[in-house]
Amino acid sequence: MATDQLTPTRSSGTAAPAPRTRWRIDARYQPVLGTVVVLAVMLAVGGSRYENFLTGRVMANVLINNSFLVVLAVGMTFVILTGGIDLSVGAVVALSGCISAWMFTHGWSAGITIPVCVLVGTLVGLVVGVMVHVFEIQPFIATLAAMFLARGLCYLVAPESIPITDPTIVKLSQTRWGTDDGLVITPSGVIALAVVAIAFVVLHYTRFGRTVYAIGGSEQSARLMGLPVARTKVLVYVISGTCAGLGGLLFAIFSRSGYSLTGVGMELDAIAAVVIGGTLLTGGSGFVLGSVLGVAVLGLIQTIITFQGTLSSWWTKIVIGALLLVFVVLQRLLVLRRR
């Protein structure tokens, strides 16, 4: 899977207008390249130290266990590319899961419940988008408010963990396609990959996507260029919210329950994945596929620590923290050098 990921990154290189004649790599791809290097090092270290590490099963599990994070990171990429931030996604994951569990226990069918829990995220995103754009509230504060709101609503819907026994969800959580040697994929994994593919096309091949980059470059300029800044800014939060709603669904499938304490800090994992994936927090530079790589890095750290066996799982956080620091400093240096 890791080698699969390297190819699309390169193809994104030819997709965006990149100078091919120059001998050095375009500055825009340098951060993503860093991510690829980190990933390669991790795979090499893991593969040399542990047997069975570089197997389809392990790699497939990285995707399957993190499919919800992939979806969140994709949504977060849109927001961060405009120079914003979305702190509400973790709480929206919980809210979406709680609402789905509540609806299932009250006899709603999956055909209604699934769209509803995705749309809950859309709605939260819309509210945030309107707050950010119309009332010009800092994205940090607007999404912080949305985070508390969504988290609070979770307790209203589901004070305790509600198990999900709906046959559709159960079936979704148990289905596995693939070969006997472990290279399998779940419906959640397929959904996550589909989201990545759609986001890739939207971000790189539509005017909306290019406007996202333009706003991240300079919102003032984008406005003076006559681009639809207002619509685009609201839409990125709607996209992020929708992705969070979908992520909640995937997490509900993964855990087969709805619980109000789900996804505490998950928004920070998503932000970490986006940043490690080479997207600048100041906006205007980064790629969806980079964020996928970022999630892969986070997933691999966890996997390596599991393989190691004796380390506490808190080491995951320590490594992520260190990595994040390194990446942010590197990004800063790149930006400074470009000036």
């Binding site: 207008p17 300079s218 260029m225 681009l227």
Partner: peptide, 18 residues
């Protein structure tokens, strides 16, 4: 200059009219 310096010259010229 009110352009986006994170994008290419082509995109800056054509943004919104791609």
């Amino acid at each position: 200059v009110n352009l986006c310096d994170n994008l290419s010259v082509a995109e800056n010229v054509m943004l919104g009219h791609e």
